[in-house]
């Protein structure tokens, strides 16, 4: 069978739905959606979504794997939980959105340049390193992720906030030097590794 036919056969088949159920956090809830759209309407960032949650659920059922996993949409979620509170079917939509984003990321399908994804990555790397966030390093990495020139411009535009935080002692300018990790950094690393192994095994990712 040609690729085209395979795609066609997969349309509206539950292959992808089952994949989501198995591998995405709270993915088993996707099938419970009844397409009322209250999640999409309640989302404060709604207008910014290419595909709002309810549509993503329909796309999953329609077998639109690539379109969903490559979408920027679920990266828009800011965890306000409005959708969860309103959903008449009690779907944990916030969690599903994060689950889908995470899954797409793990598969390498998530849009590479999506700022939320990149921030999350920077944040993760930062926190994992010592078991604690190094705030100054995190901010600078974030500002300079698109190159030096961009970084300077971004930092400059945020200077008032930065100075304010310094004054209020909410940011330690010497963080690079004075940052202390947690007591058992190695222990944290072992824990995370183990967790990753379990997750990979459960979701069928190659180790």
């Amino acid at each position: 069978m040609s690729d085209l036919n395979t795609t066609m056969v997969n349309e509206y088949r539950s292959n992808f739905l089952k994949e989501v159920e198995a591998n995405v956090e709270e993915g088993r809830w996707v099938k419970m959606c009844m397409q009322c759209g209250v999640c999409s309407g309640s989302c404060p960032l709604g207008p910014a979504w290419e595909h709002p949650p309810q549509e993503i659920f329909m796309m999953i059922r329609a077998g639109k794997r690539d379109e969903v996993l490559k979408s920027e949409s679920m990266w828009m979620c800011t965890s306000c939980y409005n959708c969860i509170v309103r959903c008449p079917r009690e779907l944990p939509i916030t969690h599903i959105m994060h689950g889908l984003a995470n899954y797409a990321h793990r598969l390498g399908l998530a849009p590479k340049m999506n700022p939320t994804r990149r921030f999350a990555k920077i944040f993760w790397d930062n926190i994992v390193k010592s078991g604690r966030v190094n705030e100054i390093e995190l901010s600078l990495r974030l500002y300079f992720m698109d190159g030096f020139k961009n970084g300077v411009e971004k930092a400059w535009s945020m200077k008032d906030i930065g100075l304010g935080m310094l004054k209020a002692r909410r940011l330690n300018p010497l963080g690079f030097v004075t940052h202390k990790g947690c007591k058992d950094t190695k222990g944290i690393h072992r824990m995370l590794k183990k967790a990753r192994e379990i997750e990979d095994r459960r979701k069928g990712f190659a180790a």
Binding site: Q35, C36, G37, V38, S40, G41, G46, P47, H51, P52, Q54, E55
Partner: peptide
């Protein structure tokens, strides 16, 4: 809200 038939806000 959102009209879910074709996604219209």
């Amino acid at each position: 809200g959102v009209d879910t038939e074709g996604y219209h806000r």
